[in-house]
Amino acid sequence: MSRVWFLYRKDLRIEFRKKESVASMTFFGALVLVILNVAQGPGRRLTPETAAGVLWVAVIFSAVLGLGRVFARERENGCISALLVSPASPGTVFTAKALVNLTLMLLSQAVLVPVFFVLFGTGLAGGPLALVPSLLLVDAGFSAAGTLLSAVSAGTRRNEVLLPILLFPLILPLVALAVKATGGALAGRPLTELLPLLEPLAAFGLIYAAAGYLLFPFVVREG
């Protein structure tokens, strides 16, 4: 447990020194939001469900940008082999990396969600706080599945292209549920009504946390 914490702090420290991931994730996400706002045309209001879709497109695309960096960096420095001979087990490395990804996603969303409300917020009943449960659950599932698959794609020749190709099909159900849940939240429905949608989101997170923890060692051993 203390090793997870140690690796987590190490990665975050590097991240904040260079500021490469969070900054580009947030910037790219905001860019997507603006593009979608332009594409929507001036003076039109979106239904809560469509607005939720817009938010998730921006969130997912910006998150996948950050995922690729976490392992690309390790590979460039040959750190994976160093991690493997270190006393930290691969499972520990997986947990730490997934938590780093989760943190990066949450940080960039702390900016993206307000930007979303500025651009699309008029006429929506629910506020930013109503989105917190579904954002948290999706981020957890996304970073668990994403960490596993970014380790896979980092070992291939076409890293940058392959990651979204591998990851997006797996998280399709996650996005579908998240759009439904946030759509409901934006329409001002209470949390209890959205529970049937949030439970599978949590299940997805648990499944991929377990699958990632078990499968990740095989992937890094091939590195």
Partner: peptide
């Protein structure tokens, strides 16, 4: 190894996929 990991990771998605398709 990668193909095996992906095949397993894809298959454990099936219950969630089906459930979400129903809720969707």
């Amino acid at each position: 190894t990668y193909a095996a990991v992906m095949a397993v990771a894809g298959f454990v998605d099936v219950p969630i996929v089906f459930l979400s398709a129903r809720l969707f």
